[in-house]
Amino acid sequence: MNTKELDNKFVAHSYGRFDVCLSKGKGSTLYDENGKKYIDFGSGIGVTAFGICDDEWVKAVEEQLTKVQHTSNLYYTEPCAELAELLCEKTGMCNVFFGNSGAEANEGAIKFARKYSFDKYGEGRSTIITLVDSFHGRTITTLAATGQECFHTTFGPFTPGFKYCPANDIERLNEMITDDVCAIMFECIQGEGGVNNLSTEFVKEIEKIANEKDILMVVDEVQTGNGRTGKYFAYQNFGIKPDIVSTAKGLAGGLPMGAVIFG
């Protein structure tokens, strides 16, 4: 069997595929099994931030593989500490929690937001506002956080505690600020929902509400972070300071890594 036949037989097809079997690449160029050349405009949906098989990236990965490829979080490791320091320097925040994916980073951000509110205010203040056409991941909770009805099927019941505001609708946002809200979570540029830009006015209104009501501002930078918008994180283009930032994808350039930055 060829690769496509093996894939069709043994891989669970939760995603549709183009009729292309990629075999190698370099920089912005990819090649299929027959040697046909492609220009990579997708960067693995925001993952291969340095390009395919970037020399410096390959060298860093190979060097670490000759030391230790994995250890549990029961022990200190130099790369973990150094990356956490770098992310805190770039954001002005204090702490980093590392995970394995964007969905896991967003799960962490949701948990941190709810824990902050529970510790300070007790029960009954756990609702998180997200935006219509947002996308925050494919776990049960991050699907619930995603403001697209097409994702709220099949796998129910979903995690409760989310409500969805139309992007850039300041009036509706203010109407949704009730006593049970602990956080507002958003992407500065919506990706899966259609590449929709938030207005500066709307983002500033989120910041104003968050400061006045002690509601946490959570920015999902899984796809927009790590240099994809001209700043290290997209929120930095708006001059705001979130309480929590989640990121992944380009963070490790192709290795499974996510992070929640806060404090």
Rank of each mutant, 00 (worst) to 15 (best):
E82K: 15
G35N: 02
G225D: 09
I184H: 04
G230H: 01
N168K: 05
A49W: 12
D180K: 04
N196H: 13
K249C: 07
D119W: 04
A234L: 07
I45A: 09
S23Q: 11
N237V: 01
E175S: 13
E63Y: 05
G227D: 05
K90R: 12
K120A: 03
D243L: 01
T139N: 08
C21S: 12
C21P: 03
T153E: 10
D19Y: 01
D243G: 06
L30Y: 08
A84D: 05
G102S: 07
P160S: 02
E207G: 03
H136C: 04
T224M: 12
W57V: 13
A248L: 07
F233D: 01
M257D: 05
D55V: 09
K249F: 07
F112H: 12
T224L: 10
S43R: 08
A252M: 03
T66P: 05
T127A: 12
E187P: 07
D220L: 01
D40P: 03
E5A: 15
G263M: 02
D19T: 00
G147M: 06
S43M: 07
A252V: 05
E56F: 07
M257V: 11
G16M: 09
L87T: 10
L22I: 11
C88W: 01
T200W: 00
I209C: 11
D119I: 03
T154N: 15
N2C: 09
V58Q: 11
I129T: 00
S126H: 14
C53W: 09
R114T: 02
G263F: 00
N237F: 03
C94A: 13
E85M: 12
I52H: 14
V260T: 15
Y76L: 13
R125D: 08
G35F: 04
G108E: 13
F162W: 11
F10T: 13
K120G: 02
G254Q: 10
T146K: 08
T139D: 11
V195H: 14
V58E: 11
E123T: 13
T29L: 12
T247Q: 04
T48D: 07
I140F: 07
T153G: 04
G258F: 00
K120H: 08
D180F: 07
E192K: 15
S72C: 15
D19A: 05
D214A: 10
G51I: 03
E5C: 05
Y31M: 10
K249S: 05
D180P: 10
P160Q: 00
V195T: 15
R138S: 09
E33P: 09
Q64M: 14
E56T: 13
H152N: 04
C21D: 02
V195L: 14
E5M: 06
